[in-house]
């Protein structure tokens, strides 16, 4: 009781996990439902997976979203890492307050406002300098990089704050150049944060409906935009199949990442804390 393993806490945890997983389990179960009436069980069938794979609109959107997500994640890790390093290691520089404000503000900005403001920027830019010409993949990618890099910056900054700077200082004292110190010392140590930052950006980009809806153009509908237009009209068994594929891929990824991090952590015998929970350093 005193250690807190009381019946109340156990029951609360069980109920909470059931609450978190009930919708996901229901999607998976109903994705194998033969009946078109999503919630009436009509026998086991993989029919909706076939329909999903024949749905050209969804496939096109999925391919577009994956491409955007890969470019976004890569660019966001580069820019976000630079921002994180600047904030964690560079002490004072001119405009630091503005910079640190700009890196954390996208995290609390409502998505509708981010989307609206970026669209207005793109319209104004096109008006002024003729770029970007129209809206589509480029504008969506730029928008995604902007909010993803903020998350990466936070993750990297938190990781660097935990890292004793004396390692880097020792290397500098021994005459290594700053760029070399960064690549040889800092990058390997913050590698888990780089990986989780990349995955986080990838997921955020793949998942974004609102910002993409604002800055997309005709013919550049991302997967969430297509899914949203379909589910707005009601439940669709195809979308259940799509969700199940998502859940399978993500589960494998998260479990593998968890196993890798815990192995790395055991190796370094460091406090098991936070590495798989990027936004909450």
């Amino acid at each position: 009781m005193r250690t807190g393993r009381s019946a109340f806490v156990m029951v609360a945890m069980a109920l909470c996990l059931a609450f978190l997983y009930l919708p996901i389990v229901s999607l998976v179960v109903y994705s194998f439902n033969a009946s078109k009436l999503v919630t009436v069980w009509g026998g086991f069938s993989a029919r909706w997976y076939g329909e999903l794979l024949r749905d050209a609109q969804i496939l096109r959107a999925a391919w577009l979203s994956l491409r955007i997500a890969v470019v976004t994640a890569t660019a966001a890790v580069v820019l976000g890492t630079l921002a994180g390093v600047a904030l964690a290691r560079m002490g004072r520089f001119r405009g630091r307050i503005l910079f640190s404000g700009m890196t954390s503000a996208p995290l609390v900005m409502p998505e509708v406002i981010t989307g609206l403001s970026l669209l207005l920027l793109f319209v104004a830019l096109e008006d002024l300098i003729g770029w970007p010409r129209g809206r589509g993949v480029t504008t969506i990618t730029i928008a995604h990089i902007t909010f993803s890099m903020a998350y990466v910056a936070v993750v990297i900054q938190a990781q660097l704050a935990n890292l004793d700077p004396s390692l880097e200082e020792a290397a500098l004292d021994l005459g290594a150049r700053p760029a070399k110190v960064f690549l040889v010392i800092t990058v390997p140590v913050i590698a888990p944060a780089l990986v989780s930052g990349w995955l986080l950006s990838f997921t955020l980009s793949l998942d974004d409906l609102i910002i993409a809806s604002f800055v997309a153009g005709p013919g550049s509908s991302t997967l969430p935009m297509v899914v949203f237009s379909k589910v707005r009209l009601g439940v669709s068994p195809e979308i259940n199949a799509l969700a199940t594929l998502f859940v399978v891929v993500v589960s494998i990824g998260v479990i593998a990442a968890g196993a890798l991090t815990s192995r790395a952590q055991r190796r370094r015998s460091r406090d098991a804390q936070g590495a798989i929970a990027p936004p909450f350093g």
Partner: peptide
Amino acid sequence: WTSFLLRVYAWIG
């Protein structure tokens, strides 16, 4: 890590 949109959609069913 799973799609937010799809998890909200699950509640409709």
